[in-house]
């Protein structure tokens, strides 16, 4: 399980990167991108935690989160595209 701990640590760093891009991103599209990336990181983290904590119920969360993350990204992209008009 050491491997999974290392993997979770890498994911935590990736989330920091996402937050940094969210704050500094020069354009709004960068921020939408950072949110999308952050969502991917969180979903991967949930999947790994399901194994690490032996809680298969978390895997349902993975399924729902992929769908919701996609919808959120599309909505965010629309918002960025429309606000700039």
């Amino acid at each position: 399980m050491v491997v999974l701990d290392v993997a979770l640590a890498v994911l935590a760093l990736s989330l920091l990167v996402s937050a940094w891009r969210l704050v500094t991103g020069p354009t709004d599209a960068d921020r939408a991108l950072a949110v999308d990336y952050g969502f991917v990181v969180v979903v991967a983290g949930i999947a790994l935690l399901a194994v690490r904590l032996r809680t298969p119920a978390l895997l349902d969360l993975v399924l729902v989160a992929t769908l919701v993350g996609f919808l959120a990204t599309v909505a965010f992209a629309r918002l960025v595209a429309e606000r700039s008009r």
Binding site: D28, L33, T66, V74, A81
Partner: peptide, 22 residues
């Protein structure tokens, strides 16, 4: 689901960047 939604999300973000004049 992931494999089908990724291209669409990527395209929407790129299109948003293009339309907002990035």
């Amino acid at each position: 689901l992931q494999l089908f939604t990724v291209p669409i999300a990527g395209y929407k973000i790129a299109e948003a960047a293009h339309r907002s004049g990035a």
